[in-house]
């Protein structure tokens, strides 16, 4: 049975990429696929020995108006949920930054004056991690604001993988939802601070709405939970592990080194986390 674990957080900087890449390392014998869906700043590849990187472009559809056919009736602007089209008496303005490529304007134009054309917004990078499986990373072009199409394209590369680890973007808005959607399990990495707790609550709520089972790892653990344990109980979500605060780990991570060497007990923590996830699925 295949297994997809998404690693998300709510708050940024809690250790998603640390956990996702370290999990990839300890599960190397199962040849995992790690997908970096943090497409605004994909960095998982910095922490793993990746080679043979192949790059494919990602496009999205944008409306193009045929001025000869357009009667400036205004229906396209009316049906656009995102205000991406404005119809002037003799001109239609298209705002690509607002367009969500839903196709409503083209589909509902009574004159068939709108076609949809591909626009380049990013790329998907695929490579092998020496002795550890495969890596896929989505990368959104600078200046583009809509990341879900690149996340979708990266996740499409998943086909056939037995074990997939998805390194998710922070937050609980569309990009995070797109990354976590369809996972078998969502591993939420938090830190025991008020900010960490606040965003963990949002992430737990998001998992509940998505119907994805969740478990929590508390990173930078120094013995004070700051209400995280209460919060986890309220959602009926287990705390699967604690990663102790460690200056050595932070230093090694900042240099892109193997975190399992900087903190030998991290491997044991993550093995227990993985075992609990497997047990919850059986």
């Amino acid at each position: 049975m295949s297994l997809t674990i998404s690693v998300a957080s709510g708050k940024g900087g809690t250790g998603k990429t640390l956990v996702a890449t370290a999990l990839t390392r300890i599960l190397a014998d199962q040849c995992p696929l790690i997908i970096d869906t943090d497409v605004e700043e994909p960095n998982a590849a910095l922490f793993l020995p990746v080679s043979n990187l192949q790059v494919e472009p990602v496009h999205r559809l944008l409306p193009v108006i045929d001025d000869d056919m357009c009667t400036y009736c205004g229906i396209c602007a009316e049906v656009c949920e995102f205000g991406a089209l404005t119809v002037l008496p003799q001109q239609v303005l298209v705002f690509p930054e607002l367009c969500h490529s839903c196709g409503a304007c083209a589909g509902l134009c009574p004159e068939r004056a709108i076609s949809e054309e591909n626009s380049l917004i990013g790329q998907v990078e695929t490579g092998s991690i020496n002795g550890m499986g495969q890596l896929v990373a989505g990368r959104l072009n600078i200046g583009e604001s809509l990341s879900p199409p690149v996340i979708k394209a990266a996740k499409k590369k998943q086909a056939g993988a037995d074990l997939t680890i998805i390194d998710c973007p922070p937050g609980t808005t569309c990009p995070m939802i797109e990354a976590v959607r369809d996972s078998d399990y969502c591993l939420l990495v938090t830190e025991p601070t008020p900010f960490g707790k606040h965003d963990l609550a949002l992430a737990l709520e998001a998992c509940k709405l998505l119907g994805v089972e969740a478990g929590i790892i508390i990173n930078r653990w120094q013995g004070e939970d700051n209400g995280i344990i209460d919060l986890a109980e309220r959602f009926g979500t287990p705390i699967l592990g604690y990663i102790p605060f460690s200056f050595e780990l932070a230093k090694a991570y900042a240099q892109g080194q193997d975190p399992l060497k900087a903190m030998p007990e991290l491997g044991g923590v993550l093995e227990r986390v993985f075992r609990q996830i497997k047990e919850s699925r059986s």
Binding site: G74, A77, C80, E81, F82, G83, A84, L85, T86, V87, L88, P89, L93, F95, E97, L98, H100
Partner: peptide, 30 residues
Amino acid sequence: QRAHGSGTSTAQLLVSEGVKSLLVGRIGPK
């Protein structure tokens, strides 16, 4: 009340109403 595009949608309303001048405090690029 829109999540997205409230500026362009409000602008569309003014165009459709045939407005010639707008008095406003702040207005964005779109």
